[in-house]
Design a protein around this nucleic acid. Structure first.
Lengths: 241, 241
DNA sequence: CGAAGGCTTCGGCCTTCGTCGAAGCGTTTT
DNA sequence: AAAACGCTTCGACGAAGGCCGAAGCCTTCG
């Protein structure tokens, strides 16, 4: 006899296993909500097809939809889904070492991107390492924990630490970065930090991607404040529409 | 544009998404190697079908095969695969709360089982919690780290800590338990501990399952040594062959 | 109130892929 | 050497499911 959960994992995996649905989930990995039509065009299928996929993924708990007027906004159902997909990327990256950055777009993607609602990529793991090295952040019993000086650091950058701590979700989880294979900061604190960095003009979201661009101000931020040299913002090549 | 890794994750997920292959992977989750024929009968398909599945999973890096005479032994390719499947179970368990233990076999499965090559289930997370509470084990910067007293504790139970530390794989990772949703001990140390507990007659492997039975001696072990009350060994019901 | 836009349902086409029996190859045993 | 065994390849069958166009529902806008 095999584990009772096997049929269930097959169901979930089969759902992610369709290329079109995988593309949709990849789009949603930036944490933003999308209308069904956007998803359709971004995934390269017709509206009816996309609608069917969204229905299936909703039933399985992969995504959730919110109706607003004549629009239906689709987003990932939660962090568990984002973590699952990130883990799949980790495996795919290990199994296929051929995925070395070839294009400038991919290099930029590995440099800085969103992972659901927080920052990921080389800059993210370097930032965490620097914060730990300066004793602003410590690895706690279940994720990270900022020190007193660390809380000041976060607040000075516009992060409402107290509010993040009150959040119903985990405060400061660690999340395995699939391209770097090291931990970065997730949880409510990670989400708040990303929001603050974007609001503060340190990072800029691209239109339809998870890739983040480091602004000129951002390069100064990472170099001076954290001691992490940020690569020159990659050319926006290979990004048709 | 979407993440460059999306097609790859779809490929991997689609592979796990087939019910038969999921059953095979579930069987292999105990870390033991199986012949193709064993896998076929355990998954309930013919030999040719199983052979095709094994070939596909091998090409994708999910499993690895070792030819020995006229036998071909199949095992999981590595811990990344085990972690990925465990994560899928976590999601499936969340999305479908209907997976409450109904049968005695399932209850036993949640009590103690193998996760690839280490111990998982309620007993595993309780054991780790007790070890941490007694300061025999600490959460380190990347997984766990036994204290000096902890190393003595492990050695006294027949675990070769020094050898585990020299292992090429991670020494003492933490691994999220899908049924308990708390961390248990993985990595080389976790594998060595499971081996020692089985060798020492504390736990007994079932024939074709991941479920572990706690022996009479084992109940004393968990109660006295660690302060974790082990449930009575579940009846071996619902286990046809 | 009619037109327009977003989304879903329906019907049908088509590809993909899991499945097995039969046959073939290589190893082990007698 | 012959027989037994484990495994794979081949060929064919059939079910599952992704895909789209047309049509219909609902909300919003003019």
């Amino acid at each position: 006899m095999t584990a009772p959960a096997d049929p269930l994992i097959a169901e979930a995996a089969a759902l992610i296993g369709d290329p079109t649905r995988a593309r949709m989930l990849g789009v949603l990995m930036d944490g933003r909500a999308r209308t069904a039509k956007e998803l359709a065009s971004l995934a390269g299928v017709s509206a009816p097809t996309a609608s069917g996929h969204v229905a299936k993924m909703t039933a399985a708990g992969l995504v959730s939809v919110a109706t607003q007027g004549r629009h239906r906004y689709v987003r990932l159902a939660g962090t568990e889904v984002a973590e699952l997909i990130e883990r799949l990327m980790t495996f795919a990256g290990v199994a296929r070492p051929a995925v070395r950055p070839r294009t400038a777009a991919e290099a930029a993607f590995r440099e800085a991107r969103t992972c659901y609602d927080h920052l990921a990529g080389r800059l993210a793991v370097e930032l965490v390492a620097a914060l730990v090295a300066r004793d602003l952040l410590r690895r706690g019993h279940d994720g990270f924990e900022p020190t007193l000086a660390g809380e000041r650091w976060f607040r000075a950058r516009g992060v409402d630490v107290a509010r993040a701590r009150c959040s119903p979700r985990a405060f400061a989880r660690c999340c395995l970065d699939w391209s770097e294979r090291r931990d970065h900061l997730a949880g409510a604190l990670g989400a708040a930090l990303l929001a603050a960095l974007v609001d503060g003009g340190v990072l800029a979201r691209r239109k339809d991607e998870r890739t983040l661009d480091v602004t000129t101000m951002g390069r100064r931020f990472f170099a001076e404040e954290v001691g992490v040299p940020a690569a020159r913002a990659a050319e926006r090549t290979g990004v048709p529409a």
